[in-house]
Simulated assay, not measured.
Amino acid sequence: MTTDTPTYTISERADLLGYVPYLLGFHPADSVVVLGLADRRIGVAARADLGQPRPETVRRLSRLLTAAGRGSAAITSVVLVGYGPDPAAADVTRSVANALDARGYHVREVLLHAGERYRCLQCDDCTPPGGAPFDPSSTAAAAIATYEGLVAQPDRATVERLVQPVGGLAAIAMAQAVGRAEQRLAALVHDAGRDDSGERAADERLVRAGAVAVEDALRVAEGGGRLDDDAAAWLTVLLLDLRCRDHAWQLTDTEPWQLDLWLDLTRRGEPALLAPIASLLAWCAWRSGNGVLAGAAVRRALLADPAYTLAHLLSEALDQAVPPGSVGPWPVS
């Protein structure tokens, strides 16, 4: 992920390690993590599985560092952190660090986090032989990240589960609500079609209904409320129209309550209606700096509609490590 978080100084290795899970959105395991620094500021954070072929890991991380460097400031140095049992994680992390160094990236630190300890992989005497004790929850960086509203899920699988569909009675109730919403939409279009203007009147009513539904949903979410099944189903049906989707897109940015709204609807949405909702969740998560959740949402959107353009645009932005801050606010109309 790229980072657009508040600025504060990290001066200790323990604080750096305590902050990494909040940069990624989850606590990594069996991973190699790279932090790209623009001067002394973290510009990008990315991870790869320890078991992934090393040439592939190096190519992917290099591509992300290069892409991040095209933003506001070039990446001038990197920090590598391995997560997993020594010696396997140590060997992979050293190898990736050496490969990035050979590609011209100045490697400032190479650390290994294993269990409740960490150690330096660049020298033998700057951390104890058995590693320095480490409790990520007690670091100042973790406390500051929590204060700023950043969340670190227990693991990556937990992030993926956040976007999984509801089941049981909740899913049945939502399916019934979608049926009612589709009948309501058909009636709206049919009634408008009786006017002299015919198709144009139906189209205008559809656009107007979509705008009202989007704005009502955002108003409820901003007030801390949750859409009932009928309101949620009506919105998801209308979001299939690109003009309605675009209206929601223009009104969605980085507010936590917006993230809650689109996450809730992604979990409750009917599979056939999911691509717009999950794409809006991905947009909000990406703009908020939560690349892992954005990626999970994009995958759900593309599962619903493999050709959905907005999901592909966001997938490309994530793959290329495009900084969220590189996209300005929508122009005021």
Rank of each mutant, 00 (worst) to 15 (best):
L162I: 04
F134E: 05
T236G: 10
G225F: 03
A304I: 09
E148H: 12
R119F: 08
V166G: 06
R219D: 14
G269E: 07
G130S: 08
A201D: 14
L61G: 01
A278G: 07
A248G: 09
G193Q: 05
A232L: 04
A186P: 00
V189K: 09
E215L: 13
D195N: 11
L240R: 14
V207K: 07
M1W: 06
W286I: 03
R94Y: 01
T146H: 07
R40F: 06
Q258N: 12
G149R: 07
A29C: 02
G193H: 03
A170S: 14
C284H: 12
D305A: 15
A14K: 04
L150A: 07
A217M: 09
V33R: 00
S62P: 00
A145P: 04
L265A: 05
F134D: 06
S288R: 15
L259V: 12
R13E: 13
R184N: 11
Q320T: 12
P324T: 12
L227Y: 01
A171D: 05
E222N: 01
R47K: 07
A192W: 02
D253R: 14
T146M: 06
P128D: 15
L280W: 04
F134A: 04
E215F: 09
A97I: 10
P53H: 12
T66P: 00
A213M: 10
P133G: 14
Q153W: 12
M1N: 07
A232S: 13
S72Y: 13
P154R: 13
A275D: 12
V212Q: 11
S137G: 13
A181G: 00
G84A: 06
T236D: 11
V237G: 00
R226T: 15
P331T: 14
T3W: 01
H247D: 07
A202Y: 01
L274D: 02
D216G: 08
H190Y: 11
W249N: 15
D39T: 09
A74P: 02
P256F: 15
L273C: 07
A307F: 08
V33D: 00
S138N: 04
M1P: 10
L100G: 02
I172G: 05
P53L: 11
R299Q: 05
A175C: 01
A152N: 08
A152P: 06
R200T: 09
A294C: 10
Q164H: 10
R243W: 10
Q183S: 06
V212D: 11
Y147P: 00
A175R: 09
W249P: 03
A296E: 11
A201F: 08
L313Y: 08
L111A: 06
G295Q: 06
A275I: 09
V220E: 11
L293D: 01
A157I: 09
L281E: 12
V81E: 04
G193C: 02
T158R: 12
R60L: 15
A157S: 12
T252D: 09
L50T: 03
R194W: 03
T57R: 02
V110Y: 00
E255D: 15
W262Y: 15
L111G: 03
P271R: 13
G325L: 08
R103L: 15
T254H: 14
R103K: 14
P154C: 15
V298R: 06
A232E: 00
Q258H: 15
T139Y: 07
G193S: 13
L80F: 09
A213P: 03
V34S: 01
A317P: 01
T93F: 11
